[in-house]
Design a protein around this nucleic acid. Structure first.
Lengths: 331, 331
DNA sequence: CTGTTAGCGCTTTCAT
DNA sequence: ATGAAAGCGCTAACAG
């Protein structure tokens, strides 16, 4: 069933049918009703592809995320999808796994003109502008990156101040009586954001008079197991650290498990803080003090920014959100 | 840059350009190279919308999920996306929030001819066939439902035997020395699958000689807090139950927290089991014994089934997966 | 091997 | 208020 079939049965031309479909120009009320009746009778829905070909847009955006199974990314993807859905956009999701070749495949795919814009979730995508193929594919549409920076003229960012976020955790611990010399940091991911967090830690300690705290940073894989490994290493440090600041909630949970497993108490013997304020922080025991980097707000702003760039209304190019600390039982 | 521009500059007709694009029919090697060179020069990519209009497919599928932030759904959505991506499909995700009106909106949207098929994640969608609007919208394409049943001629299912799943947990507990009379069940969600789990519990107890165990089922909201509430109720039962079987991991974690908070030990005083074998089961303490309902396998089969229905190759209409129990520290 | 021509289903001038 | 016709960018017969 298409516009021709309807037109024929109604005894009018396709333009008239199109008019009632788009209810822009005025149509004789009688003919309009006759056509409406046929729409109902056949349960007619205009074809989005044909419309898209004329409109040069399918009203769809893509989300690039490393892995939506990671709660923080799931949260972000969810918010972006819901918001764009409200605005009548379809949302395609692309789990790149952090791999360049996959990212290229997705980029090539969305470069085919049916996607109006893309939001990149996470600073993992920072270097994407450097890859000629990806850059070429993404050149044609606005792209906004959540918590990262992309060196392309059509790229815009919503950033979280992760350096501030970590310093929040540090100063909280100090306020709780921990001596700056007894605080260590666990770095897990290898993203730009992770580097910024680490620097934030070093800067916060420097501010408190602890220079050269680099050896107080422990690098482990991003996983529960990684957190456990960190705990092992930390427990061997003399004198024993009294507080552990982690770059991610998942790792922090691992640290708690490692520390607890070794017979120590959290937070009495060792305090632990996480990052992202994800669900993990409520699931684990004790509940995790965590930096809330405002993931939902960030996603919301990404949508707002991307939408305005898509429909050409002017807007900002970049903005930074300040995180806050949520204190719970682990510190 | 389109096929006409390329054709003009190459001094050939658009059909020739189209031919090298699709490399089906043979083309003179020289002209082919000349055209290829132009593709590279202009970084030309054929327009997917135009292609779609001819092919009557955009090679995209939709995933309906209540909320991808729920780990089990995120896992499923992830697997489905990855698999379809491998098969060169775009994947649109729709977070319905479990609300009929939203579901209708999404259904109406994908009924516009640009979506080739849909997978419904979860038995929450069981009743969808009853809604005329949704049914009408979905009539035009194959739909497969993960762990549910849909009464439409174009609907196919991959099911997990949730009744078996719960009975696995029960018999494990009995084997561990718990008397059937001391085992209770926590029901959280209101889906068909949740009902089946509950029946599975009652059936398993009946098999063990405990009739009329209905009052041993506690209904609470699906949340950590719900689990805590369940724990409160359960602790008031005399004699005190020694084991709690839960319908979801999240609720099980809440039960553990509630029980632990009341000063009891898990599993020594009370054993707890969850369902889904989600990440939650590893995050909480003690780690959670949980029914692995093979979410990934289910997603994989959904993709396989939907794909075969889309391209008309024949296939099965329905199949059931058997869950397994993963025993951990909580029981 | 290559060009011409007709669609795909719709929107949008331009007439009437 | 309505119709005719062009065109969106591509594929697919059908002729040469």
């Amino acid at each position: 069933m298409n516009i021709y079939d309807i037109a024929k049965e109604a005894g009018v031309s396709i333009s008239t049918v199109s008019r009632v479909l788009n209810s822009k120009n005025r149509v004789n009320p009688e003919t309009r009703e006759k056509i409406q009746a046929l729409f109902d009778k056949y349960n007619y829905t205009p074809n989005a592809i044909a419309r898209g070909l004329v409109a040069k847009t399918m009203k769809t955006v893509a989300i690039f995320s490393v892995d939506v199974r990671v709660p923080h990314y799931a949260q972000t993807a969810y918010t972006i999808e819901r918001e764009f859905s409200k605005r009548a956009y379809n949302v395609i999701v692309c789990n790149t796994g952090g791999e360049l070749e996959e990212t290229r495949r997705y980029a090539r795919s969305i470069a085919q003109g049916h996607v109006d814009g893309v939001v990149l979730v996470g600073s993992v995508f920072n270097k994407l502008g450097m890859d000629d193929e990806v850059a070429a594919a993404l050149r044609g549409m606005p792209v906004v990156i959540a918590n990262g920076h992309l060196d392309m003229p059509n790229a815009y960012s919503i950033l979280a101040d992760d350096s501030l976020g970590v310093s929040l955790a540090v100063s909280h611990l100090v306020r709780r009586g921990h001596s700056p010399e007894n605080i260590v940091y666990v770095k897990d991911l290898d993203t730009e954001s992770a580097k910024i967090k680490r620097s934030g830690f070093l800067a916060a300690l420097a501010e408190l008079g602890v220079e050269n705290a680099r050896q107080r940073v422990f690098k482990v894989p991003y996983s529960l197991e990684g957190g456990r490994q960190a705990a092992q290493k930390i427990l061997q440090v003399k004198p024993r650290p009294t507080a552990v600041v982690c770059g991610e909630d998942l790792t922090a949970v691992g640290v708690i498990k490692g520390v607890t497993g070794a017979g120590l108490l959290v937070p009495d013997d060792i305090a632990v803080t996480g990052y992202n304020n994800s669900e993990y922080s409520l699931i684990c025991s004790p509940e995790l003090t965590s930096v809330d980097n405002k993931g939902e707000m960030c996603a919301l702003l990404c949508v707002q920014l991307l939408e305005s760039r898509i429909d050409g209304s002017n807007s900002f190019s970049s903005m930074t959100i300040n995180p806050e600390l949520v204190v719970r039982g682990s510190s």
